[in-house]
Design a protein around this nucleic acid. Structure first.
Lengths: 271, 271
DNA sequence: TGAATAGTGTCTGTGAGACAATATTAT
DNA sequence: ATAATATTGTCTCACAGACACTATTCA
């Protein structure tokens, strides 16, 4: 018996056939319109996510991300798309793998590893075919030194949680997230939400993924609003227009009737 | 029976108890010294990865990344560290989750989902306790329009593969990798290697992870060499020094005996 | 006319790319 | 002296931040 074989037996034999359950969870982002406080002003925009109310144990009556078990005949992304279709009737959504969450006790029933996906949609393209237990929540996020305070609101119910953020190693940009306060988010989904928000915040500036959240035609003001709610800060108009210029294409359409100067509608321009 | 429950039953019931196997695979990067072709010149550096020769089926006699099954009592990262320890005797390695690979037929035995980790080490800190079936391979990478040609060499054996790279969606930076040619890499590990190389290439410029591959003391020339082999291109000295300046700290040590002007040794400076 | 957004012009400072110049060592 | 790397200086260009200014609409 060689040393390799010895190590193999020593380390793997006892548990070789243990198999965790694997789920695919989807963090679906969109932008919602708020009310128009004044006929001259633009409608306020909100950053929002889709949650599902649990009606079975565990975490009964709490909210969670749409998700479900992965079949052996599908990839985790295929599972995500199947689940999304079944809960929101949405097809052809932009999806990217976010992170694999695997805390040993994240699900009280059994060992469950969750491969999470981040999705972006234009909520307005969605026909109103959400099932009754699914709902869009507007996000309010406040970040200080070490923690992130999130409030989610669907007009009916408010969910709040606080996540503590710690750098995993001094050399990297990876964070460890710990849930400090949480009333109504099931599983470790509060962490998934924060992780996805950070991913989106980063990627919005070096990819074109934001256009997956836009309709076909949009004004640069609307596009800027979306950047601003995702980044959580105001941007300067000329700088924004310079940066975005190469990614959009002017159309001959114009948005009028807004109580102020009309705005040219733009389209996404693939490079 | 409400629509939610109906959907639940329709979609999940049949396969609810299917459980895939889950493995954790580690892509361990380091830098190796080559020969000194001339007493004045610096030693050439190579970018290298650790592979293990398979001595059982499937893929017997091919090479793969160190990896193994995840136990239900450990996270995938804990599994990665346990496996690394058992195969290389390495502790306290920098590790970050890379991606979860889940093609349905990536393992001919059964459905296996692999959560891959990328690790960075200074090969010289490693005592020579690699098991006989593990070996460091130097990487040569050539990239053109649409494909990446990789050659791996451990001084004894050469592995070659070609990966075709296609953008997954027009709005993003995510690629789909297809193995076009491959003689000796087991499973889908050729894809994992390419995926990790791209991740490292990106992150080297906006994090400090490269210092996990360096010894405690190094010259700026050596550090620049490491950047150059990872990025696959020459950098200009003054620009490199400007960028790196805030991350390193001058020491009073000096490297002499090189056939040219001696060089100050630097240390990593945490911010 | 006034309040609001749309859209443009321009100044300034920062920082990367490029190249030049100087310093120091072993043979 | 020479070949090699080490280290610094500086010019220029691109571009982001900042602010000012003009344009246009509806009540």
């Amino acid at each position: 018996m060689n040393s390799e074989e010895k190590t193999f037996l020593k380390n793997y034999d006892a548990s070789k056939y243990e198999r965790p359950s694997v789920t695919s969870d989807i963090l679906l982002f969109s932008v919602s319109d708020g009310v128009q406080s004044n006929y001259r002003k633009l409608k306020k925009k909100y950053f929002s996510i889709l949650l599902v109310k649990r009606n079975t144990h565990p975490f009964k009556d709490m909210w969670c991300l749409p998700g479900g078990f992965v079949k052996n005949t599908e990839t985790t992304e295929e599972a995500a798309r199947r689940i999304l279709k079944s809960e929101t009737n949405l097809d052809n959504v932009y999806l990217e793998q976010l992170y694999t969450f695997d805390d040993i006790n994240r699900d009280p029933r059994t060992r469950v590893i969750s491969v999470s996906y981040m999705g972006l949609v234009d909520k307005n393209k969605l026909d109103d075919t959400l099932y009754e237990n699914a709902s869009w929540f507007n996000i309010t996020s406040l970040e200080d030194e070490k923690s992130i305070h999130i409030t989610l609101d669907n007009g009916n119910e408010q969910l709040k949680f606080v996540i503590k953020k710690t750098l995993k190693e001094k050399t990297t940009d990876r964070y460890k997230y710990d849930v400090v306060e949480n009333n109504k988010m099931a599983f470790d989904h509060a962490k998934v939400i924060v992780c996805g928000m950070e991913r989106l915040k980063n990627k919005i500036s070096y990819t074109d993924i934001v256009f997956n959240m836009m309709g076909e035609y949009f004004t640069l003001g609307e596009l800027q609003q979306v950047y601003e709610i995702i980044l959580g800060k105001k941007l300067l108009d000329p700088a924004f227009r310079r940066i975005i210029a190469s990614k959009v294409e002017k159309t001959d359409k114009i948005k009028i009737g807004e109580g102020h100067r009309p705005s040219v509608l733009f389209k996404y321009k693939k490079k």
